[in-house]
C-alpha cells in the first residue's frame, strides 16, 4: 500500500516540477484573469445600477461569487489534462504505462493535483494585488459550517472536473481528433458550471434541471456554498448528488479505459 502511494507521490513530485517550469505562464494567466474579474465587476456593476438586488442577491454577494469562481478555476478546474491524455494516446506514449505496474488514472490524477497546487498558489498573487481595490466589494458569509462543507465539496468538484477531462482524453481511442469536442463541452460546462453567471439567475425550471447535471458540481456548487447562495439543506443534498456523480464518472472512466484499450494498437519498440 505504502509502495503504491510512493509511486504516485513520485508522479506528484514530477508533476510539480513540470508545472513549476511553466510558473510564469500560470502567473501571467493569473494576472490576465484579473481583466476578466474587472470585466465582471464593470458589467454587473452596470446591471445593478439603481437596484438593490438581482435574483435575490446584492451586488457585493454577486461580485464575491465571481471572485470565488476565479479562484476555484485555478484551484480545482481541469486546464488541458484532456489534451495531454489525448496526445499520450495518439503518440503512443501511453504504451509505457501498459507495461508498468502503475494505474494510469491515478498517475494522471497525481499530476493534475500537482498542477492545481501550483496554479492555485499562483492565483493568490494577482488576487493579493487586487485585494486592496476589491475587498470592499466582497462579502463572505460567516457561518463556520460553510467552510466545513466546502472542503469535501471542493475535493469532489476537483474529481468531477478531472474525471470529465480524463473521459474526454480517452475518447481519442475512438476519435483521432477530440479538441473540437473538448472546446464544445467547455462552452456547456462554462454555462452549466456557473462560470458565466450564477445558476440561480436562470429561470427556476432550468435551474432545477441544472442541479441534477454533473456540471453544476464542477464549480457552481462549491462557490455557492462558500458565498452563501445555498443553504444547509441544499448543501447536504448537493454533497450526496455530487458524490453520486463522482462514482458514476469513475465507472464511466474505467469502462472507457477498458474498452478503449481493446481498440488500442501499440506500434514500435
Amino acid at each position: 500500500m505504502l509502495r503504491a502511494a510512493g509511486k504516485y507521490r513520485q508522479a506528484f513530485l514530477l508533476g510539480l516540477q513540470g508545472s513549476l517550469v511553466y510558473r510564469w505562464n500560470f502567473a501571467v494567466r493569473g494576472f490576465f484573469s484579473l481583466f476578466h474579474l474587472a470585466a465582471v465587476f464593470i458589467l454587473w456593476g452596470a446591471a445593478f445600477a439603481g437596484r438593490e438586488q438581482v435574483g435575490g442577491f446584492d451586488l457585493r454577494q454577486t461580485l464575491t461569487y465571481f471572485t470565488t469562481i476565479l479562484f476555484l478555476q485555478f484551484l480545482i478546474s481541469a486546464f488541458n489534462e484532456d489534451y495531454q491524455i489525448s496526445e499520450e494516446i495518439r503518440q503512443g506514449l501511453i504504451n509505457q504505462f501498459l507495461l508498468k505496474p502503475i494505474n494510469y488514472f491515478l498517475y494522471r490524477l497525481s499530476i493534475f493535483a500537482a498542477a492545481r497546487l501550483v496554479s492555485g498558489a499562483l492565483i493568490l498573487l494577482p488576487l493579493a494585488v487586487a485585494y486592496p481595490f476589491i475587498h470592499e466589494a466582497l462579502s463572505f458569509p460567516s457561518e463556520p459550517w460553510r467552510l466545513a462543507a466546502a472542503v469535501p465539496a471542493l475535493f469532489l468538484s476537483a474529481l468531477v472536473q478531472f474525471t470529465i477531462a480524463y473521459c474526454f482524453g480517452l475518447m481519442t481511442f475512438w476519435f483521432l481528433e477530440i479538441q473540437g469536442l473538448v472546446v464544445l463541452s467547455m462552452a456547456v460546462e462554462a454555462v452549466l458550471g456557473g462560470q458565466i453567471f450564477p445558476l440561480d439567475l436562470l429561470p427556476p425550471a432550468l435551474h432545477a434541471v441544472a442541479r441534477f447535471l454533473p456540471f453544476y458540481y464542477q464549480m457552481y456548487f462549491p462557490a455557492a456554498i462558500l458565498t452563501g447562495r445555498i443553504g444547509p439543506t441544499e448543501t447536504a443534498e448537493g454533497l450526496a448528488l455530487q458524490a453520486g456523480w463522482v462514482v458514476l464518472l469513475l465507472l464511466l472512466a474505467h469502462a472507457l479505459w477498458v474498452r478503449g484499450l481493446r481498440r488500442h494498437t501499440a506500434v514500435g519498440g
Binding site: V21, Y22, W24, N25, F26, V28, R29, F32, S33, F35, H36, A39, N80
Partner: peptide, 15 residues
C-alpha cells in the same frame, strides 16, 4: 520571450 505562450494567448480573450 517566454518558454510557452500557452495561457498568455488567453490575454486576448480576457481583453
Amino acid at each position: 520571450w517566454l518558454t510557452s505562450a500557452q495561457g498568455v494567448e488567453g490575454g486576448y480573450f480576457s481583453l
